[in-house]
Design a protein around this nucleic acid. Sequence first.
RNA 1: GGUUCCUUGGCCGAGUGGUUAGGUACCGGUCUGCAAAACCGUUUACAGCAGUUCGAAUCUGCUAGGAACCU
Length: 301
Amino acid sequence: MTHRKTLVVVTGPTGSGKTDLAIELAERLGSEIISADSRQMYREIPIGTAAPTPEQLNRVRHHFVGNLSLDDYYSAACFEEEVLALLPHLWKQSDYAIMCGGSMMYIDAVCNGIDQLPTVSDSNRLAALEVYTTGGLDAVKERLAKLDPMYLSTAPDLNNHKRLVHALEISMEAGVPYSSLLTGRHAQRPFNIVKLALNPLREILFDRINRRVDIMIEQGLEDEAQSVYNLRHLNSLNTVGYKELFAMFDGSMDRDTAIARIGKNTRVYAKKQLTWLKRDNRVVYITGLDDALRAIGLTDF
RNA sequence: GGUUCCUUGGCCGAGUGGUUAGGUACCGGUCUGCAAAACCGUUUACAGCAGUUCGAAUCUGCUAGGAACCU
């Protein structure tokens, strides 16, 4: 079945040129851009997240850029809900909406859906976390053995405390095992999805990343990091570019090392993104605008 | 020129005769709720040469490179 309305996803590793391509594409198709970047959403940190510039934002309307504060709670599920609510509005002016970003889990949430889970109350959240902080991983496993043994036997990485604590807090909140709430099914969306990805040669990508770090420093990344230093405990600042500079402010890392590690950690992040993309067989790899238009099915240009 | 000390994998670093230290990077992977997160796997050694020994990164000698002090 084919729908007229299409969501064009432009993704790829950080530094691959997604932003520029998405803007060109949006101008060509007369559409707006949905940013799928979990960090560009925070208005306090545009430099280190390579958020679209004011000029770029002026050329094409963007959604989900600078729309959150660092201490706001957010998740892939929130993103799915908000994007699904927004899409019909975007399709009033164009048959195409463009989603651009590198937060793969956010993109998956929109394209494939995410199971409905109860919102965890603060008390359960703290209780689950306390099991971990006081008793460690083993204590969490012990509790899960009672509340959700199925999850324990099927979870792919039992050393990942974040996932186990999450399974525990959901099980506590729902009163039923977390695993029983997971359907494993992909949602069928009532619109077309074309998933495009940029994938430059690693040598070129790494070179661009290295240069971008220098540019960020020139643009004042250190001041930006300094201005949010007092919020460094927030998860939203557990982010490449900030955690390294915070270590420098703490005095536990010198400046050269901090800057070098920003580059290194950005390269690592890019590789994780590529690993994620590899198993998605819907992805069409492209190199530029012409490729993209062809993949969308627009060859008459 | 003399004396003493040092040389371990891309980098850091433990190990004074007998199971692959470890960390980090690189490379690869996992992924349904803060995901730029969290987690997992593999690979790369003992400066060189010759000896002692059943067995040497560990002992001896020589060579190369380096450090400190002395003249």
